[in-house]
Design a binder for these strands. Structure first.
Lengths: 338, 338
DNA sequence: CTGTTAGCGCATTCAC
DNA sequence: GTGAATGCGCTAACAG
């Protein structure tokens, strides 16, 4: 079964390769009748154009890359879902790259992407990243970048984020109104825009409510080692002056906190309240003690992908300034509100 | 900034394009000195080979496709994590395609993949799929397939699965030993190998324990509509003769069940026991009433990817018969065992 | 050890 | 409206 390419179609139809090519691309200069014949044979032989030949020729791949820190995480899984849904609709292909929160890997991946393998990329930064040169290089090569969630403020590219400052504020305020006074904040990385903004909101809420912030309650966790974070929280909860609430800036830290509470037999919210940024709907469903700030992950993915495709199709970078802010939701369970 | 390609390097070095090409591929026929010069300039100019030119020429793309029903699901997210980790190690690229449990999409995607865009594919079938011609076609085009979890028994390709029958048996037995007698089984699709085998185990356990199976307790759920499944479970739990346990064959059905119990104010495991196949570790952590059968999703992904890469690199299909069976774990929480 | 030549499959000139 | 010729960037066969 010889591969069916343009040459094959052309020969069987007694046409030139170029004519067949144009017919398939529905060019205006080809007669309706010829197009019909070409389409029919193509369908019959199940012709599939070689994407690599086409990409080589056109310097376009109809492929995008998604570069994210991890995937075993509800937020990113949902975001990919959104991205893929738009990509499928637009006829684009999606390559997945995981940095595992490592700057080194992020650099290696983006460097590789300079090859022109993709037409554009969607990025959510690793927690180690503080230098953005690798991304600037990509932009300079003419490859559009759209950031989502974990953005690089200094790079002039579209960004899709959530209202982190406000959410951090609301979360802290919720805890305060529940009677908490010693609220610990678990930061995942002070390199990350999201973690910092959430913390700013938290600090502002404390201040507005005349609660003196104890710096010992703002804890820098590890971006890689969950086991260590678990121990950190255990230690935190064993302090003489135990906090009465934990505010976890990301899903993984929420999980570490739950584990720690279980280990120490602390009841939530009886002994300690926990509030976290997370998309753990199922967990929240099952445990009425959970209060979460849930990001619209699917929509973020869709939005980011939409912007990227707009850029790719208009071949313009006029969206550079764009900054879309979606709202997270503070989800308080009935039984928690009591 | 002109693009830096082989021609550019060759010109600057006063060498032929082919020499540069060979030097970069570390060919034995190039002198150490020349290689050194070539590498140096390539590094200096940050040369990135055009992957499409290379793929076109070699008929190899160093890219694989992962075709799965959904991603916002812990099992598949973890599996992708495993796949990506192996792919990154081997220098392969990973394209993601979601079928959203639709046969139509699965066909469209695999048909497209006949173009030679990828060197091989990893598949977990959609719940609608009963005809496998689209996959047979791919194989005939010489594109290796490795199935994982939701496999096509009749296709002679490597398969990575878990011990579904045994797990189903153990799950049912666990419920029986906890005193349950009216155990409902929620099937996601009777097209799926996993759902059927799990049910066989369940039926066998009932029989071995002399419990008559009530066919009305084996419930066929919707593969697409979670809202409908939620209602189905509600209806199930409102029957005069309410079941005393639910065995959910997949994560989504477990979630629907939890929702239903909450709505009806049924306590787990006081009013009803629920056991499910799921990778909802966090949920399980937070709710001691949960008993889960957890699949080694990350390992499944790694294993499947490893097999595929072995095939691709040895360029042989001698692994066709291979069938790897990994074991799921029945996770019973201390507080549940009571 | 290195250079010359000839495509991979497709899209785009430029002819007619 | 259609065909012939060219080249995208790279690899491989064949020379020398």
């Amino acid at each position: 079964m010889a591969t069916v390419d343009l040459k094959r179609l052309a020969k069987e139809l007694g046409l030139a390769v170029s004519t067949v090519s144009r017919a398939l691309r529905d060019s205006y200069e080809i007669s309706a009748e010829t197009k019909e014949r070409v389409f029919e044979l193509a369908r019959k032989l199940n012709y599939q154009p070689n994407p690599y030949a086409s990409s080589l020729r056109k310097h376009k791949s109809r492929t995008i890359a998604v570069v994210i820190p991890e995937i075993a995480n509800n937020f990113f899984a949902l975001a990919i879902n959104g991205i893929e849904s738009i990509a499928q609709e637009k006829g684009y292909h999606v390559l997945i790259y995981l940095t595992h929160e490592q700057y080194e890997k992020e650099v290696a991946i983006t460097r590789h992407l300079q090859s022109g393998r993709v037409d554009g990329i969607l990025v959510s930064l690793s927690g180690e990243t503080t230098n953005y040169d690798h991304l600037v290089d990509l932009k300079q090569k003419g490859i559009p970048i759209v950031f989502f969630d974990r953005i690089a403020e200094s790079i002039n590219s579209p960004k899709v984020i959530t209202n982190d400052y406000e959410s951090g504020y609301k979360a802290a305020e919720h805890l305060i109104q529940s009677g908490c006074r010693r609220i610990a904040y678990l930061s995942i990385s002070n390199n990350l825009s999201i973690s910092n903004k959430r913390m700013q909101g938290y600090l502002e809420a404390l201040e507005d409510h005349r609660i003196k912030h104890d710096p010992k309650l703002a804890i820098q966790c590890s971006i890689h080692d969950n086991e260590e974070n678990y121990k950190t929280v255990i230690a935190l909860l064993k302090r003489k002056n135990r906090p009465d609430a934990i505010f976890a800036s990301v899903e993984r830290l929420a999980i570490a906190s739950y584990h720690a509470c279980e280990e120490l037999n602390l009841s939530i919210p009886g002994d300690i309240r926990i509030i976290s940024f997370s998309n753990l709907e199922t967990a929240a469903l099952l445990n009425p003690s959970l209060t979460t700030i849930t990001q619209p992950a699917f929509e973020i993915g869709k939005e980011a992908a939409s912007i990227l495709f707009k850029i790719l199709e208009k071949k313009s970078m006029t969206f550079s300034e764009e900054r879309i802010i979606l709202n997270s939701k503070l989800i308080v369970r009935k039984s928690t509100a009591q």
